[in-house]
């Protein structure tokens, strides 16, 4: 795949050294090109790319609030359409909190109405911008400031909410999962999402050095470990047709992923076994 050199996200942004969110946005925008309007929900990405009076965005970009990114994108799409500008891509970038929790109603509405837009959830598995609070997308066992581990708790006690499948249940033409560590797979999906007429949803797994607790140089390796252990699965659903887009050669033990992050360091063997069992079950169903 020929990957364009042109960057649509300027440097100088305030992301932590090694931030995976900006990697995801850079790669997505390379596929979408300059004829694109971006919408962001409140969150790390919005804060680090637009410290007033600066912006990192080289394309038109709009932010309104935490909960309504999909509603704003719907309005932008309709306004462009009424002006006859049918060739402009409208893309939303929202965090997992902005997607799985507070923005879910706006997102569901946009999917239901069938707007021609692309929604990318960059999932770092907690509310990072406000200091690592749990979200509906936080995985089982992870320690966050609102699901702390200690005498009374082993960390997050709920499984990760399955947002891509909730999106698929809306019957939209394109749904995919992706990871910043598999750039070609991700970029192919963005290209498909761009070509689809109607709503397209991509759930992008994005390791976060600060919130997960690992060395900044390991951001890509962590994303890879999530996929190679079967903890994160790469698939797409095109017009209802489900397809795994990447199969690990041989699944690594989940512990190789867990033990490289501070948020899972406290887990006892039995809790890790429970996570391995859960992953085995999901992978068996999908023949991974």
């Amino acid at each position: 795949m020929e990957i364009p050199e042109e960057e649509f996200l300027a440097p100088g942004h305030r992301g932590c050294a090694g931030c995976g969110a900006t990697v995801g946005v850079r790669l997505a925008l390379k596929m979408l090109g300059k004829n694109t309007v971006a919408v962001s929900a409140t969150g790390c990405l919005e804060v680090i790319t637009t410290p007033y009076p600066e912006t990192s965005w080289k394309i038109p970009w709009i932010h309104v609030a935490f909960e309504n990114a999909a509603a704003v994108a719907s309005g932008v799409e309709r306004a462009l359409k009424s002006q006859g500008k049918d060739d402009v891509n409208v893309v939303t970038f929202a965090g997992d909190g902005g997607t799985a929790d507070i923005g879910l109603q706006a997102l569901s509405g946009a999917m239901e109405r069938g707007h021609n837009l692309i929604y990318i959830c960059y999932d770092n598995e907690a509310y990072m911008n406000t200091g690592v609070q749990r979200s509906g997308a936080t995985p089982y066992g992870a320690s966050t400031t609102t699901s702390p581990h200690g005498k009374e708790s082993f960390g997050e006690d709920k499984p990760k909410k399955n947002i891509p499948m909730i999106m698929a249940a809306h019957g939209v033409p394109y749904v995919a999962t992706a990871s910043i560590s598999y750039p070609e797979d991700f970029m192919k999906k963005v290209k498909k999402a761009k070509e689809v007429d109607g709503p397209a949803y991509i759930h992008l797994h994005q390791p976060c050095t600060t919130g997960w607790g690992f060395d900044p140089s390991q951001t890509i390796e962590l994303g890879r470990l999530a996929v190679e252990t079967g903890s994160w699965i790469l698939y797409e659903i095109e017009e209802g047709e489900f397809k795994i887009t990447y199969r690990p050669m041989q699944r690594k033990p989940v512990n190789t992923y867990l033990e490289s992050q501070k948020r899972f360091k406290h887990l006892k063997e039995e809790e890790k076994d429970r996570i391995q069992e859960y992953v085995d079950q999901v992978c068996a169903e999908l023949k991974i």
């Binding site: 300027a10 790319t49 912006t55």
Partner: peptide
Amino acid sequence: GATVKEPGSSKHNKTGSWR
């Protein structure tokens, strides 16, 4: 609300000093 009219203006912030 606020409008920023210079695309990519975060380039004025040289983050090389973080290194």
